[in-house]
Amino acid sequence: MSFYGWLWRILPGPTPAKVIGALILLVAVIAALFTWVFPAIAPLMPFNETTVE
């Protein structure tokens, strides 16, 4: 029972293809984090409390 082990098994092709597939997935995840997830959670951080009402 291992998420990354399971991911490695379902990636298609021989080992070099699996490595490329894993890298593509990694880049896609980081891009999604940078584009949507981090901008959404940043305002919740105490050090980003810029405004005073």
């Binding site: 980081i30 984090l33 940078f34 981090f38 959670i41 940043a42 951080m45």
Partner: peptide, 14 residues
């Protein structure tokens, strides 16, 4: 890894 990426995003990417 998630937290490290967030720090990198906040301090560098912004």
């Amino acid at each position: 890894a998630f937290l490290l990426l967030f720090v990198g995003w906040q301090l560098w990417w912004t």
